[in-house]
Amino acid sequence: MSTPAAAVAAGVLPGRVWLYSNYHCNLTCTYCLTESGPGVQRRELTAERMLETARQAAELGFTALGVTGGEPFLVPDMPKTLAGLGAILPTVGLTNGTLFTGRRLAAVEVLAGTDVALQISLDSAVPAVNDEARGPDNFAKVVAAIPALIERGITVRIATTGESDNPDDLARLCELHRGLGVPDSDHVVRPVISRGRAVTADLGVDATVDDLPAELTITADGAFWSPFGPTVINGRLDTDLLLTRTTDPLRVPAQTLLGLVEGRPAGGDTTLNIR
């Protein structure tokens, strides 16, 4: 078996390590992988734990980090934590973008000029369509937050979940994000994955391990094959994509992931464009 560093350098193993900072959220999106919402178990990774994981990831040869949840910005001091992570490896922080007003908007200024990008969810240029999945006033809050963040020198990406049958919908959405200051290169579109709340709502496409990039994902419950792995349904954590319960030292799940990846045909994960 090779090392994670060699596998990342060779493109055999994706370079990004994901951290689930928490599972709670101010929204209850219809397709949420983790059944996140205001009342769920928080299952937080502490800032210290995230930073230590990032240091070990860098030592192992990983090249980037991602932070997701839940809504990470519900965790106090998340801007400082993200800045710390960005000082170790380039980092993308996923957020629903609805909390960036007042003190939180001021606090996030610490990310200006750092190697941290914020990836904000926006599913449609039509407010009613976007808000149907993500909750009332979501569209208005997001389109207000994006330029406010960009004005403060923060890199913003947009993630669209779900694919419309009408190509005009995507064109309108792209027109919108360009107008908000986000270029096409910082816009990702991915399908709803039928895990978590999407299963309950009968949404999305089935994705097996063969469809998912092998991005090492660390949570309070253990290490998983992908950020699409530590999903929750009916309050229970899915374990089908669990790698190890051990996450420290990071080499334990990294070597387990590598062992599985090395037995996998190349390129098989690209069909569903799950990124």
Binding site: D238, D240, L243, T256, G259
Partner: peptide, 11 residues
């Protein structure tokens, strides 16, 4: 006790 559907990858 995990059934086949919930079995982790290495299991």
């Amino acid at each position: 006790l995990l059934d086949a559907a919930a079995a982790p990858l290495t299991a």
